[in-house]
Structure formats: C-alpha cells, structure tokens
Design a protein around this nucleic acid. Structure first.
Lengths: 221, 221
DNA sequence: CCGCCTATCTATAACAA
DNA sequence: TTTGTTATAGATAGGCG
C-alpha cells in the first residue's frame, strides 16, 4: 500500500529506485497506449534511466522517426507563432501606452530643434527635386527591362506580404503605426523616430532625437 | 465517475475525445514528471492529437533536442538531416529574393506619375510648415509632463531595439534596406513603398505605387 | 478552454513469499 | 530477482458552471 502521501523526491535506495523505475515505466507506457487508442493520437516516449538505459514507446502504426520529423517541422512553426504572440502582446502594450499617453505628433517634433527641422525640410525638398528631375529626364527612356524588373519587385513584395513568415516582418508596418499619430489636415501623417543604430549615445535614455536619427514618415491614406 | 470498465477503444464523440485527450495528456505528463524525479531519469514525450496539435513533455534540466540526439546516437537513426536541408532551402530562397530586390530607387520612383509626386511633395511641405508653426507657438510651453511622456516613448523604442526578439523586426530594417537606395547628395535617403494594406487593388500585381500608398522615408546618416 | 466535483477504477509502495 | 498481495493515493469520465 502507499504508506502516506508519496513524496515526489528522488528515491535514494538504488534497488527501490530501479524497481520503481521499471514499474512506473510500464505504467507510463500503458497510459500512453490507452491515450493513443482512446484519442487517436500519436505518441512518442523516449526515456533514459539513471544508468542511461534507453526505453521507448511509440504508438501503433507509427515510427519514432516519423514523430520526430513531424516534431521538427511543427516546432519551428510553434517557435514562430510564439514569437508572433510576443510581438502582438508587445504591440498591444505599446498601443495601450500610447493611448494613455495621448501623445501627438507635435510633441515628438518638438524635440527637434528648429535648425534640425529646417535642415530636414530642405533635404526632403532636394530629394523631391532630384526625383522630379530624374523623372523628366527619363520619362520615355524607360525600357521594357526596367518595367519587368518593377513587376518582379512588386511581385516579390506581394509574396512577402502573403507569406506568413514574412508577415512578421510586414507587420512591422503595424508596429510603425503604433507610434503613428494623426494631425490636422486633409491627410494624416504618422511619424516616428528610431535611434540610429550606427550611433552610440552615452546617455542613451535621455537622448533627444535629432535629424541624424533615422526618421520614418508614413504617408497614410 | 468511471462508468464501468473503460474500454480501450477510440472515443468516437469528437468533444469527449478532445476532453479525454486533454485530461489524460496532463495525467501522462504528471506521471512522466514523477518518474523523472523519483528515478532520476530523462524523459521526452512528443505527441500529436488527432487534429495534429503538438504537445510535448521534457524532463527538467534537459532539452528535447538532447534526448533526440542521444536517441539518435543509441538507435542509429538520423533524424536531423531533413531539418537542416529544409533550413538551407529556406535560406537559399531568402538570398535569391534579396538578390532580385537589388533594384535602384529611380526604378521605383519612375512609377509615380508627376502629379502624385507633386502632391506628395506638397503634403510633406505642409507637414513641415505645420510642425514649424506649432514649434514656434509652443516653444517654451512644453511642460514637464510632456517631456516625461517623450522619455517614455523613447524608452519604449529602445526596448524594442534592444530586445533580441525584435531583432527580427529590426532586421526588417535589413529588409527595408533591401529596398533602400542611395542617391546623390550630401545625405543618403532610403525610400520604399508599401502597398497600402487598407486598399484592395483588383489588378494587384500590376498596380503602380501612388501617393496613396504608404511611403516610408528613411533619412540615413 | 479551464476548473470543480464525485463515484469508480487504476496504479503502486511496501511488504511477503 | 521476480511475482503476488493489499491498502491507499491517484486518475479520471461525465456532469456542471
């Protein structure tokens, strides 16, 4: 009889431990077998005794290798989904934080000093000018090859958007929006700052964004 | 109560089977845990339900991979090779994708028609103007609360940047850079387009980016 | 899904042969 | 060592929330 509640603690007596191992192993395998049959599941049990003896159980009509192969395939997916869950959770927290903060675009931009702002502004203008000029120059010079390349590019982007794995990256877009804010105007802009990872700021936590940080503009619909 | 001797026979009722699976799985794992502690053994249980959901048990201070590796050694079954091949194949595809994406900025921008370009340009200017005006108005009106909020925001961003899990997202930065291009000028810009996910384009594959797409500007150092 | 409950059934620790 | 016995703790089906 079980004399008193069994302490789940290593059995120190070598013989008793060996006997218990054998009996409980059989019990475990029996349970596993019942489970396979009752619930139509596939089970693999691999165990090594303290003396490194191998014992294994495998459900009928299956092989251990099959189970392990499947495990490898599926566990990767699980890793991804766990990762995805963590991202979603953090995203949720960020959204909540932002909601509480009710932070507006202007409050971010206020951290830019006026000179940096003008500098950034000017560079944006230059970019547009340059692009506009390039466009005019090459208006009809686009050759078929370029258009094909473009189509390929768009196609690749779509693949990324559709591939669940790339979804994690593309949902980065959702992350971007986490820190995005609407402002007045016919259209909404979202703006956020990244610390420029090429930089090392000794006083990282207190560093105010500057024009040398990476700045992301999202022109939203 | 166990109504009569349990027949070790597949439970046909879907719901009952699922419930029993869950309960017995917990029981099995508990037994396995007791066995590992009582008898100082290492146990790995891998199981798939009839709906192919994966559940696993692994004894403390062990990993499933260790057990499988050891199993492989003892039983002489090669279980990891398929996995490695799969990883390599994925890697190869990613590299190929990146190579294809090695396009230049102009080829993207050329898809914007001149009107969209001007429209975008104008909106950027409006944003800057609005921010600049607001800045002047509120120059010294920033209160401490706002600054705290700003610090919190920056802190959140840093957490994101430092969290290894977000490495995948931040490596999205690498993905972004796949579509980023340097152009002439004192500073480099990176520009990329996202399909605006709020839109549905019937002719998706051939849709040229327009100002209504989300457009991301990275002002690089 | 998860937990609680209870009547039964099962597993097993300690002991015995 | 193995096998059998037995008292008791544990497991669990089905019901309910």
């Amino acid at each position: 009889m079980a004399r008193g509640k069994i302490q789940i603690k290593r059995i120190e007596n070598q013989t008793n431990r060996q006997v218990t191992y054998s009996k409980r192993r059989n019990g475990l395998f029996k349970k596993a077998h019942e489970l396979t049959v009752l619930c139509d599941a596939r089970v693999s049990i691999i165990m090594f005794s303290s003396s490194n003896k191998l014992h294994e159980f495998i459900s009928p009509n299956t092989t251990t290798k099959e189970i392990i192969d499947l495990y490898q395939t599926v566990s990767d997916v699980d890793v991804w989904s766990a990762h995805y869950e963590r991202m979603q959770e953090t995203k949720r927290k960020l959204l909540e934080t932002n909601r509480k903060l009710g932070l507006r675009l202007s409050e971010c931009l206020d951290e830019l000093d006026i000179q940096e702002l003008r500098s950034l502004e000017e560079e944006m203008e230059n970019t547009f000018k340059l692009v506009r000029e390039r466009k005019i120059e090459t208006t009809k010079k686009k050759n078929k090859s370029q258009q094909d390349i473009q189509k390929n590019l768009i196609h690749e982007l779509e693949l990324r958007a559709e591939d669940p794995h790339y979804g994690l990256v593309d949902n980065g877009g959702d992350y971007d929006s986490v820190l995005g804010y609407q402002i007045e105007g016919s259209r909404a802009y979202a703006l956020r700052y990244h610390q420029n990872q090429h930089h090392h700021y000794p006083n990282h936590a207190l560093h105010a964004p500057s024009a040398s940080d990476i700045i992301t503009f999202h022109l939203l619909e």
